[in-house]
Simulated assay, not measured.
Amino acid sequence: MRRAAGGTPGKSRRLPETAAVLEVRRAVRGWLADYAPDAVRGVAVALSGGADSLALTAAAVVEAGQVDALVVDHQLQSGSDKVAAEAAARALALGCRSAHVLPVEVGNAGGLEAAARQARYAALDAARGGLPVLLGHTLDDQAETVLLGLARGSGGRSIQGMAAFAEPWGRPLLGVRRAATRQLCADLGLTPHEDPHNSAPEFTRVRLRNEVLPLLEQVLGGGVAGALARTAAQLRDDGAVLDALADELLRAASAGADTHNDRADSNCPALSIETLATAPAALRRRAIRAWLRAGGAKALTNKHLQAVDELITAWRGQGGVAVGGAVPGSRLVAAREHGRLTLRLRGSR
Rank of each mutant, 00 (worst) to 15 (best):
T18C: 01
T18V: 02
A19K: 06
V24Q: 07
V24I: 07
R26Q: 05
A27G: 01
L32E: 06
D34A: 15
Y35S: 03
A36R: 04
A36C: 04
P37T: 00
V40Q: 10
R41W: 04
A44W: 14
A46Y: 10
A51F: 02
L54M: 06
L56D: 03
L56V: 00
T57H: 10
T57W: 10
A60I: 03
A60F: 12
V61C: 15
E63W: 02
Q66H: 15
D68R: 15
A69M: 10
V71R: 11
D73M: 01
H74I: 03
L76V: 09
Q77R: 15
G79Y: 14
G79K: 13
S80N: 02
D81T: 12
V83M: 05
A84G: 04
R90V: 07
R90Q: 09
R90F: 03
A91E: 00
A91P: 11
A93F: 08
A93T: 07
G95T: 01
A99W: 12
H100P: 00
V101W: 01
P103C: 13
V104S: 00
E105L: 15
E105W: 14
V106N: 09
N108A: 15
A109F: 09
A109S: 08
E113Y: 13
L124Q: 09
R128V: 04
G130W: 10
L135P: 12
